[in-house]
Design a protein around this nucleic acid. Structure first.
Length: 559
DNA sequence: TTAGGGTTAG
């Protein structure tokens, strides 16, 4: 089963130089990049991009050649349409026809290279700026920092900031917003906050603005540090920075995801009182939050309210509602929402399709899920790692493993390499079929490929070993994780407890129950039911009764 | 600068 997983070696491409310094950048650019970047457009609005390219080419044939400013204007519009490879290719044509690049021209180019992940080339352009006798401006530096952040090189972005400051270049609030955003998105909110209040930043003449506060507040909310986010919210008001719709949306989202509904409502009322109208993002947040709580009626009601108030739902709103229906096992209604979205003139994206595929799989409608997957292909929509993982899980759980291998091949071909969740799905399939040697082999592969197993991976493995009669192996893995202080969750403990009960080792199971509480993990109804069943199966009826009373006394029997 | 998707225990 799944022998194909190991067929491909994982490529270790070095896409970028690992570190950049101002003095080490290359002076010139490779000009013939057409072989790297296709100029063909995938725009949903091909006329515009074609018009832009045509105008650019017309300019190139005029004599005398128009000023570089004219070319910059068109390049700028192409960048707005996100056709970065096209802009790169056109800029090199312009240079070969004799246009002397200006600083703006090169800034645009740096932005394009950053967007296509070619930071090496972006820094080459910086070298060229110096070579041509220009000085980079704040926009050049900010674009490079943004590129580094977007390409997962936040550490390099920070070093770059230190280096440019040391060399006397000026940074502004946008530079700091960019860096903080990069840090927050990389899960380093703390590091971002360190940049905030220091006199360092104010000495540079930079006052934290609404962007900076919003970035940090959002980062704190996403880390679940909602109290700190609210404190910063008060602080910004004290400092005379007025919160806007983005601030409120981040906070409302933060409160909703912590199920603090009352606080979310209070904020919603507060923003309305301050004449800040909820936007499509606010409504989507609420629809999503209600949907995730299984409160689909409320989600529906919010959807109706936004339509009544003339706020147009977008793909995200519809998709959040679809997800809500799927989570309440109503995939047919989810399909309806999908169709309504199409009818309203919106194009479902890869996330909408993945939710539908997952919903169908979870309702055991795997054939229909496959049809939707084919429809995606037909519409030239590229499935991503989540789409594949949902479908693979559905196929595995319905025993259709022959298709799974094809999908894994396809993932490799489309460079959507399986991640830890995909592997968890495969590992679970092997464990559930009690192919434990293969599961062990797959686990080794995961580690060998440098993929970090997560708590799901370990739980699947422990559960598989317990159910497949390899209790000692399960205990060995479990003990190892406990000793390491690995943060196991209620699922992991319950699997191990279940394994112990199955072998009649009730004392050990009870000991583990107390151990988990000691480790700050509360048992839930499933854990307790598992132990109770173990006691009853061993005819320990008195103990079972005593256990039940004790748990009831402690209030653990509430859902 | 804000909103949407996938994996585990009964």
């Amino acid at each position: 089963m799944f022998s194909t997983v190991s067929r491909y070696a994982f490529p270790k491409l070095r896409l970028f130089l690992p570190y950049y310094t101002l003095s080490s950048v290359l002076p010139s650019l490779p000009y013939s990049l057409n072989r790297y970047f296709s100029v063909h457009s995938h725009s949903s609005n091909p006329n515009n991009i074609h018009d832009a390219v045509a105008s650019f080419n017309r300019l190139l044939h005029l004599r005398p050649l128009p000023s570089v400013v004219q070319f910059n204007k068109i390049l700028g519009s192409i960048v707005k349409m996100k056709h970065y490879p096209t802009a790169i290719s056109l800029s090199s044509r312009a240079e070969s026809k004799g246009i002397t690049p200006s600083l703006v021209f090169m800034n645009i180019l740096i932005n394009c290279y950053s967007h296509v992940g070619r930071m090496y080339f972006a820094f080459s352009v910086l070298g060229k700026i110096f070579k041509m006798g220009h000085q980079p401006d704040t926009i050049t530096l900010n674009t490079l920092m943004k590129g580094l952040c977007h390409n997962k090189m936040v550490g390099e972005a920070l070093s770059f900031r230190d280096e440019v400051i040391a060399k006397g270049f000026l940074l502004d609030a946008v530079s700091y917003g960019t860096l903080m955003n990069g840090l927050c998105k990389a899960g380093k909110t703390r590091a971002a906050i360190i940049l905030l209040p220091k006199p360092k930043i104010e000495r540079l003449g930079i006052k934290p603005d609404i962007f900076i506060y919003n970035i940090i507040i959002d980062g704190l909310c996403k880390d679940g540090l909602i109290t700190e986010a609210r404190d910063l919210f008060s602080e910004m008001i004290k400092r005379g920075v007025r919160p806007d719709i983005v601030t409120y949306n981040s906070l409302i989202h933060g409160f909703c995801s912590m199920s603090q509904w009352k606080d979310a409502y209070e904020l919603l009322n507060e923003m309305i009182r301050k004449n800040i109208k909820p936007d499509v993002c606010t409504y989507s947040i609420l629809i999503d939050a209600f949907g995730k709580e299984g409160r689909i009626t409320e989600a529906q009601a919010i959807f109706a309210v936004m339509v009544k108030w003339n706020e147009k739902p977008n793909v995200i709103t519809f998709t959040a509602l679809m997800d809500g229906y799927c989570l309440t096992n109503n995939v047919n209604e989810s399909k309806e929402v999908f169709n309504r979205m199409v009818k309203s003139g919106l194009s479902p994206n890869v996330i909408s399709y993945s939710i539908l595929i997952d919903g169908l799989c979870k309702s055991k409608m795997v054939d229909e899920a496959m049809d939707v997957f084919k429809e995606m292909r037909h519409k030239k929509m590229v499935p991503d790692i989540v789409t594949y993982t949902c479908l693979i899980d559905g196929l595995c759980k319905s025993g259709r493993t022959s298709y799974v291998q094809d999908l894994i091949y396809e993932m490799h071909d489309s460079i959507q390499l399986p991640n830890v969740i995909t592997y968890n799905v495969l590992l679970d399939a092997l464990c559930k079929r009690q192919h434990l040697d293969e599961a062990t082999k797959l686990f080794k592969q995961i580690v060998d490929r440098g993929i970090q197993p997560n708590v799901y991976t370990y739980t699947i493995l422990i559960d598989g070993m317990c159910k497949g009669g390899r209790l000692n192996k399960a205990k060995e893995i479990f003990q190892h994780l406990l000793l390491k202080g690995y943060p196991l969750n209620v699922h992991s403990y319950t699997s191990m407890i279940s394994g112990l009960c199955k072998e009649g080792l009730l004392d050990e199971a009870m000991a583990l129950l107390y151990k988990m509480e000691e480790n700050g993990c509360l048992p839930n109804l499933i854990t307790l039911e598992t132990i109770l069943r173990g006691l009853i199966e061993k005819n320990e009826n008195d103990k079972a009764k005593k256990f039940l009373l004790e748990m009831a006394d402690r209030g653990l029997l509430k859902k």
